[in-house]
Amino acid sequence: MFVINCPYCGEREQSEFKAGGEAHIVRPKQPTELSDDQWAEYLFMRKNIKGIQYERWNHAHGCRKWFNMVRDTSNDKIKAVYKMGEEPPTE
C-alpha cells in the first residue's frame, strides 16, 4: 500500500484516498457540438498507460480535496503530486 503525499495534508496511508483515473481529461465545454464519436472519446476512451501516468486522486477520508499524481503504473512508484489546476511537473 502506498504512502501518498497529499498536497494539502502531507504523507498519509493509501487507505485514506480514492483513485479517480486518468487526469487532464477536460470535460468538453460544448458537448452538444460533439459527434457521438467525439463524445465517446471523452466519456470512455482511456490511455490506460503502462508507465508514467498522470492521474487523479481524492483524499476521501481526509481533506476531501482532489489532486493530481504522476505515477509509474508498471511498478506503482509515485513520482510527484500536484494540485488541481497546476501544471504537471516535467520530469
Binding site: 500500500m1 502506498f2 483513485a19 483515473g21 490506460n48
Partner: peptide
Amino acid sequence: TDDYISYSQKGSHD
C-alpha cells in the same frame, strides 16, 4: 479490484 490503474500485479493489503 483496487481502484487505481496498475500493471504491477500487486494490489493493496486492504
